[in-house]
Write a protein that binds this DNA or RNA. Structure first.
Length: 406
RNA sequence: GGACGUGUGCCCGAGUGGCUAAAGGGGACGGGCUGUAAACCCGUUGGCGAAAGCCUUCGCAGGUUCGAAUCCUGCCGCGUCCA
């Protein structure tokens, strides 16, 4: 355990948060010099974590570094309901197998950020206590909340206003999550701002259960690479914690300039004044700042070397007109029966290698001059072309594949 | 349970009998410009086909009609109000 004073850690721990309910309570509880139990719940609804999750996980790590205990809740049971937060439709219900598989990769990926040592981390699955609940237990839970309070929640209110459906089981979600807090006796719960309501429910249930209510700390939501919506895998606007350095670099370079300070602040340890300089156009070159950002991110999930390498590769492939090739190009074994006397038609090749799903799409992309073979634009979709072992096929600006003929 | 609405392509949304593979917008994809940013410009965006053209699509199933996303019947989903 670090010997940081409570007030020093208070300042550190509050930094970057959106809101703390409440900072006074946090200060008070830190003052007891007893390691706090810091809860973070994650629903294993998709197999990969994104930098959006990283924002909260980084905060959790800070708590660990200050000597507190992280309690990671794998919401394997709640995932079967699906958090209605931010959803305009109900989520599909996941099977237990899917949840299990996702939980596994989640944990592995979270390990890149948080300290996985047993003394610093407790991992629990909420099926442990949610599964055995009887109807009478559930009713007792429900009795602690009113319909009005539940419906005033932004996501439900919004759906109501839009005439979208709300299923009854979704109303139970906040209660289940709150019940987790009771069961693990959390001192602090972390989450994104969109989890505020859910997390605050935990305080109510804990109070009713005679426990001191947890302090709720919510982090800002990380905007996705599209610059509009919350970063999420399902929206496709994400940078994954498990992404390769190349992907991380490319995706980071593609975010808009406006997003930079947000990303710097939530995803890196750079000091505020340094960030201020980096995002100030009069003091820094935006492209270079973004490169810095990309490197800082990659350094955390891979290594400094990988970050440098990715930067070098990026400028080689995309800089100055974009002539170079990426370091790692996936091999594609050309099926023998694809090759006729004069080679194969671009359409067949594009379908076979997976660049296009339909023949019409393949025809189209060639017409749009989006396909190159060894850097040369392919003009005709239906004329067979000669291909050789080692040729590089390119779709658009960033999809490459190496043809292997054996 | 009843009344009234509503269901269109990835999303939103026009469209009330032929000129509709279906306006428009968004998104996505490709190209141009650039810093793989933003903004902007051009193109593409159901399937098969070299093309002509053919096939499939407007909740589902039937029906009317030379012809239906558009009319009729039944069913299903959703919503609002009533109970």
């Amino acid at each position: 355990m670090n010997d940081t004073t409570p007030s020093a850690s208070l300042e550190l721990l509050i930094r970057g948060t959106d809101t703390v309910y409440s900072a006074e309570e946090l200060a008070q509880r830190l003052g007891k010099k007893k390691p706090l139990r810091v809860k973070l719940g994650m629903d294993p609804t998709a197999p990969d974590l994104t930098l959006g999750h990283a924002v909260v996980l980084r905060k959790l790590r800070q708590f660990q570094d200050c000597g507190h205990k992280a309690v990671l809740i794998i919401g394997d049971y709640t995932a079967m309901i699906g958090d209605p937060t931010g959803r305009t439709k109900s989520r599909p219900i996941l099977t237990e197998d899917e949840v299990d598989a996702n939980a596994k990769t989640y944990l592995a990926q979270a390990g890149k950020i948080i300290d996985m040592d047993d003394s610093k981390l407790e991992v629990r699955r909420n099926s442990e206590w949610l599964r055995p609940l009887q109807l009478k237990d559930i009713l007792a839970l429900m009795a602690q909340m009113t319909v009005a309070r539940m419906l005033e929640r932004d996501t439900f209110a919004k759906r109501q206003a839009e005439g979208k459906e709300i299923h009854m089981h979704e109303l139970l979600y906040p209660l289940m999550q709150a019940y987790d807090s009771v069961m693990i006796e959390s001192d602090v719960e972390l989450g994104g701002t969109d989890q505020t309501f859910n997390n605050l429910c935990g305080r109510d249930l804990q109070r009713n259960a005679g426990q001191p209510p947890q302090i709720v700390m919510v982090m800002p939501i990380l905007v996705g690479t599209d610059g509009v919506q919350k970063m999420s895998k399902s929206l496709g606007n994400y940078i994954g914690i498990a992404d390769s350095p190349t992907d991380m670099f490319g995706k980071t370079m593609r975010i808009s300039d406006e997003l930079m300070s947000n990303y710097f602040g939530l995803l890196t340890d750079l000091a505020d004044d340094e960030v201020a300089t980096l995002v100030d156009v009069s003091k820094s070159n935006p492209r270079e700042s973004k490169e810095r950002l990309a490197k800082e991110i990659i350094r955390q999930y891979h290594s400094a070397e990988a970050a440098d390498k990715a930067a070098e590769e990026f400028s080689r492939v995309h800089g100055g007109g974009g002539q170079g090739l990426p370091d790692d190009i996936e091999d594609w074994q050309v099926p023998a029966d694809l090759l006729g006397d004069g080679g194969a038609t671009p359409i067949d090749i594009l379908i076979s290698c997976g660049f296009e799903k339909t023949r019409g799409g393949a025809r189209r992309i060639v017409w749009e001059r989006g396909i190159r073979l060894n850097g040369e634009v392919i003009e005709e979709a239906t004329q067979p072309i000669a291909i050789n072992n080692g040729d590089v096929l390119q779709r658009g600006k960033r999809r490459f594949i190496r043809l292997v003929i054996s």
